[in-house]
Each structure stands twice: as C-alpha cells, then as structure tokens.
C-alpha cells in the first residue's frame, strides 16, 4: 500500500521549521536583554557595596582610624592576597586639617571615591 503524504503535512513541517527559527532569533535577542539586565544589576550591587564601605571608612577616619580594607567577591573581609575589592585611604595633611581620599576599587577600576576631612586639633 502506498503511503500518502499530503500537502497539509508538508505545510505543518514548514510551519514548525519557521516557528523554531523565529523562536531561536527572538530567544537570542531576549537573552541579550537578560544579560544586559544582569550586568546592570551586578554593577549597581557593586556600587551600593562600595558606597557603604567608603562611608564606613570615612567615619572611621573621622574617629581617628584609617584602615586599608580588603574584601572578597561576596564583600566579606579577607586578606590582601585573595582580595577582589580594595579600599585605600590616602591621607593628605594640611596646616590644620587632615583629609583622606577614600577609594574603593575592584581589580581594574575605581568603583567609588570620596574625600573626608577632620581638624588636627579635634573639635570636641
């Protein structure tokens, strides 16, 4: 017996091929959008942590301490060898004021920086 393959079956196959092709194209575009969203979210998370850390160090400096701090990828304190984020404090001393430039960096770029100052003879 001869098996009959009609025009309808061919059309369904063609339709499925077009559907899979279109899905692949749009899925690729959507994946790019998801990747961009993930990148933006990671950046803002880094910036949030950097701001909090810089503010803490600024308050430490105003209280009389100026620690260099090291953080791992999850922003937990670590040693300088395995650090992913580094907080540096550059102190500049003027006549009656001591100021510190606090900078939070990852391995390649500076994430956030601020300058805090304190009088040498403290205002009680």
């Amino acid at each position: 017996m001869k098996k009959h393959i009609g025009f309808g079956t061919e059309l369904t196959l063609l339709e499925l091929i077009i559907a899979v092709g279109l899905f692949a194209v749009f899925a690729a575009l959507d994946l790019r959008i998801f990747a961009e969203a993930h990148r933006l979210e990671a950046q803002s998370k880094k910036l949030d942590h950097a701001v909090i850390v810089a503010e803490s160090v600024a308050e430490c400096f105003k209280a009389g301490e100026a620690p260099d701090l090291y953080y791992d990828i999850d922003w937990l304190p670590t040693d300088n060898v395995s650090a992913d984020y580094i907080v540096t404090v550059d102190i500049a001393s003027e006549d009656k004021i001591e100021s510190a430039r606090i900078s939070v960096k990852d391995k390649s770029t500076e994430l956030f920086s601020l300058t805090a100052s304190v009088p040498k003879e403290a205002l009680p």
Binding site: A27, I33, A37, L40, Q43, S44, K45
Partner: peptide
C-alpha cells in the same frame, strides 16, 4: 512572554542602577 519578562528585568535593573548612582 519572554520579551515582556526580559524588558521588565532590564527596566528594573536600570532603575536600580540609577538609584545606586
């Protein structure tokens, strides 16, 4: 569905970035 979900994620992430800045 996928596109709406992706655009929502992008808009939310973009808003978070602006707030952080």
């Amino acid at each position: 569905c996928l596109t709406v979900s992706a655009l929502t994620a992008l808009s939310s992430a973009s808003g978070e970035r602006v707030l952080s800045e």
